[in-house]
Design a protein around this nucleic acid. Structure first.
Lengths: 337, 337
DNA sequence: TTGCGAAGTCGAAACGTTTCGTATACAGCA
DNA sequence: TGCTGTATACGAAACGTTTCGACTTCGCAA
């Protein structure tokens, strides 16, 4: 592989001059620039990123850590961040934690080994202990996406999660539902807590009691959601509506109904948080709360690049985005008993 | 950031000894290993990947290039490869080409700059010209996934695409369909050609003529597929069945029916290539040809790691995988006219 | 004419590793 | 006792860059 030494020799200049010509980091005559660029083309020279990172102390790598790349929600995030990075001369590196803190930690370490310039993370937990662990492990500009973590002075870009479930629940209440189940998330996660809070808030506002039996266990994954919903539907007094706080669990709920020979919205009105391409084509088309994901991802990477460039200083400000209810076919007015 | 020099000093040994202790690359006493490892922990030392790559001439990075990470099909591939890499001490870097050769080229260059140890690619084109371009741009072990490219002596892991569409088409013919439309792909792609070939083969076998009007334009994306199917359904003599050669286009077809107030399978039987999580939950549940994707991705990364380790030599052998028809609700027997 | 600053170029050091040849210590053997 | 071999440890070079101080050259002002 050609090195900059080859390029310099080929162009008849010193290595330092070749470097300056390529990076425009010092005044170089147009003539020399032309010769150097010609040499680069001729030799097919591509700089050694490792050497650059070693010498300059900064890489052009940005790490992105999401729960799972197979979730269309996060795939969309990855795609957007990849694009912005590529346009800015950076490279994004995407990894899935599978909600496993150990794995998250391992990924963090590997990313640190690559000396990534910045990190965008959807963390696996949001408690203080985890915050301290992250603080210990991370030494670069970081933006928290989708979720806040205790004790971390990082910028946060997230949804108004309370509002998201509040308007979703409100919608169900407006349709006359009184027994509204909720597929909850992981108790340790701030996002889950907030989403549950929104559900409770809507009940309080409507002066509706909450039946603990209708707080269904979930873990953001399909299979547990399927089981939980199955169980709920077999209750003596089953729910007439369901709020699912994440897209994969919504799918799980659909599966459960399918397995039981039931259907939405006839047997159960369903509203999910988080729209996605397929939602409209499902049976039934899903009523969802849309999360302005593209904007959120863009904001996150913008902040990141600002942070790296020193145009902005890290702080713990939160950029809050607002959800929007999209009514489709999976919810219906509850007929009078 | 702590360097290996700090570690060495802290452990009271020479740098080279510390290195040997960490990499087990030379005999080091258990005593010293313990001291070095203690120092590593205490200082939070993480080696500088760039420096390692510079000095040793090899990185632990593997590039994965797919058409689009937002396609659940490819997201699944990415996830599998990420896992295998992580377990093998490698890091995968995933990028989406958007079927754009220029972008593919740009990504290739950036990956070359990072000195990735290997590449797994689903290429944007399969003609000879593109093959030569790739050959020029790539200097590391490479595995072609999902598609063959002319003039490249790389290992290929792909589906028996002809069989895939043949059995799909055969299924429709068996159900009595005679006017079967096909949503084709990009003409330059070997995979598309093969899939069209399978469709034609099935017709030939059944001694059925092919109506050119039923060869619908597609580009692996939703929107064109939607338009093509819309147009087809407005034909004087519309098709009674549709074969879609990729999942996103199947969704597009569904959208088209939806927009026209039509439904599958009543107005059109649909079979798509490529199963995915949502297929079962769509309206209707999709009849598809399942692609053994997980196995394919695993095989690809296995070959890759073998290639890197020198346990295997690059060649142009093809690992062929076989599809399987999964009959669900989107196809039905054509009632007699 | 001299002096001075700017433009352009160069050489060498440094970044953090790995690797390889060499040094030391000690045990075993003659 | 002296020699050889083995097990460890060390020192220094090298990987490909960027960066910085130093050196020319040249134009221009004094």
């Amino acid at each position: 592989m050609a090195t900059i030494r080859d390029v310099a020799r080929h162009a008849g200049v010193a290595i330092s001059t070749a470097s300056a010509a390529l990076n425009r980091s010092a005044p170089v005559s147009a003539d020399v620039i032309a010769k150097v660029e010609a040499a680069v083309r001729e030799l097919g020279y591509v700089p050694h990123g490792g050497a650059q990172s070693l010498r300059s102390g900064q890489s052009r790598l940005i790490g992105l850590i999401v729960p799972s790349i197979t979730n269309p929600h996060f795939a969309a995030v990855a795609r957007i961040i990849e694009n912005v990075c590529l346009n800015a001369g950076y490279l994004s590196m995407v990894f899935s934690t599978g909600q496993d803190s150990e794995r998250e930690n391992h990924i963090l370490r590997m990313l640190r080994q690559q000396r990534v310039a910045g990190l965008i993370i959807i963390p696996t937990r949001s408690d203080l202990e985890h915050g301290q662990r992250l603080k210990r492990e991370i030494h670069v500009p970081t933006v928290l996406l989708d979720m806040f973590v205790e004790g971390l002075a990082y910028n946060v870009v997230k949804l108004d999660n309370i509002a998201a479930t509040r308007i979703a629940t409100q919608h169900l209440i407006d349709l006359g539902h009184r027994r509204i189940a909720v597929l909850t998330g992981i108790a340790e996660l701030a996002t889950s807590k907030d989403r549950l809070a929104g559900y409770l808030e809507a009940h309080r506002d409507a002066e509706l009691a909450v039946d603990p039996d209708l707080l269904l266990k979930g873990d953001y994954d399909q299979s547990l959601a399927t089981r939980s919903v199955s169980a709920a539907m077999r209750l003596a007094d089953p729910p007439t509506a369901l709020l699912s706080i994440s897209n994969m669990m919504t799918l799980g709920a659909l599966h459960a109904l399918h397995d039981l020979g039931l259907a939405a919205p006839a047997d159960l009105s369903i509203v999910g948080i988080d729209d996605f391409d397929f939602a409209e084509l499902l049976a039934p088309p899903l009523t969802v709360v849309r999360v302005p994901l593209a904007s959120m991802a863009e904001r996150a990477i913008d902040i990141m690049l600002d942070l790296i460039a020193g145009r902005r200083r890290a702080n713990s400000e939160t950029d809050l985005f607002f959800p929007e209810l999209v009514i489709r076919g999976s919810t219906r007015r509850l007929p009078r008993a």
